[in-house]
Computed example of a mutant assay.
Amino acid sequence: MKNFVLLLALFTSITLFAQTEKVAETPQIAIKIPFGETAIVEGYKITFIEVIEDSRCPEGVNCVWAGRVHIKISYLNNKGAETFQEIIIGQVKGDEQNNSIITINPTLQFEVLNVTPYPQYNENKKSLPYALLLKKILPNE
């Protein structure tokens, strides 16, 4: 009986302690845009239109450098003005670093998190079901 009371007291104290902890950050949700498709965010239509280059080193292969993925997107505002932007994630020898921020206007920016899937050894990249993962940049970031 003493063991039961001790176990109950321990469980209660752990439960009460766990409920007082606060989450440090609000989790953010990534926006997934499959190749050739459009997502509408705050009145803007963002379209993943082209994979210009995917030279990322495939998994299971030893490469001299990691490579990069170079894509093209477009965004269309509610007035019909279309803008094109090229995004580079990663780098090849001698090239610029990442260019992975999309600035639609001063208050609406996105960070490109990833282009999926990551290439595999002996895989035909032309047939991959590419998708773009974006995260909205909050004003205080």
Results as ranks from 00 to 15, higher is better:
K93S: 09
K2A: 06
V5G: 00
L7Q: 15
V5S: 08
I14A: 11
E37N: 11
S100A: 14
K45C: 01
N3S: 12
T15D: 09
I71R: 06
N99P: 00
G60W: 04
K135W: 05
V51Q: 06
I31M: 01
K32G: 00
V64Q: 13
I88P: 00
N99M: 05
R56H: 00
C63L: 08
H70T: 07
N114L: 14
A30M: 06
K93G: 00
L16S: 04
Q28V: 13
E42T: 01
M1A: 08
T116S: 14
S74D: 06
S127L: 09
R68E: 15
I29P: 01
Q28H: 10
L16R: 03
I33M: 01
L10Y: 02
L133S: 09
T103S: 14
F4H: 13
A18G: 08
P34C: 12
S127T: 15
N114V: 09
F110P: 11
T20S: 11
F4P: 05
N140H: 04
K126R: 13
E82A: 05
F17M: 11
N105F: 06
K72A: 15
Y121I: 15
L108R: 04
I49A: 02
T20F: 03
E37A: 10
G60H: 04
L7V: 15
R68N: 13
I101D: 03
V69S: 12
R68G: 06
Q120T: 10
E50A: 14
L16F: 12
I88C: 02
L134P: 07
V5E: 13
T47S: 04
K32L: 03
L6R: 06
F17S: 13
K136M: 11
F4W: 15
H70G: 01
N99A: 09
A66T: 09
K93F: 13
D95L: 08
L138Q: 13
A39W: 01
F110M: 07
K2V: 10
G67S: 04
G94N: 07
L128V: 03
T38W: 04
I33A: 03
T26I: 12
L113N: 05
A66Y: 05
N99W: 02
G43C: 03
V115H: 03
P117H: 02
Y75K: 00
F48P: 10
L7E: 02
V51T: 01
M1Q: 08
F17A: 15
N105S: 01
P34Q: 02
N122T: 04
V23W: 07
